[in-house]
Amino acid sequence: MVTTDEKGPLTAKKKSVIIRSCDGDEFLVSESAAVLSTSLKKILEEKEDRLIHLSDIDNKTLAMVIAYLSTHADDGLSDDLKRSFDQEFVSGKEFDVLKYLVLATDTLQVTCLCYTVAKKMADIMKNKLVEWVRREFDIQNDYTPEAEAEIRRLDAWAWDDRQLEDD
């Protein structure tokens, strides 16, 4: 036990990276987890700096991404387990949270998570009203009523029987 206590920290320290969020909090991440993000990998290759500052990712989002990276960096987990982890990871999250998450994964270039989150967002968007989408995405309707009617006329469509939801 004594030997592991002496050796463990040294090797662990060598392989760890500190990532600072925009709120100024710091996260200790193993390097094997960090390099799963293409952006972080590039930074680590370029300089020996063990402290990476991410100015556009907040605490909460960064913590989620790091939890994801750490799980995927764990060689002890089977691929099936990682896949079920991915499903669990995005389920039950609010749309707003996912929005920040998808941006963070894009910045950090975690392709796999970006895909999962984008898919989850699309799943939530299914069967929603136009108004719901505009509200959640903070988008102003820039169609004139005439332009909208014109598009509706051009692409006449037949899903009138569908029930769309507003929440």
Partner: peptide, 30 residues
């Protein structure tokens, strides 16, 4: 985030079924 960048919107809409794209997403904005 005022709105997501175009390439993110692109990535999200890719997963949306065609019905939602045609009935809803198309009318969100230009």
């Amino acid at each position: 985030i005022e709105s997501l960048p175009d390439d993110m919107v692109f990535k999200i809409l890719l997963h949306l079924p065609v019905e939602d794209i045609y009935n809803v997403a198309k009318f969100v904005c230009r």
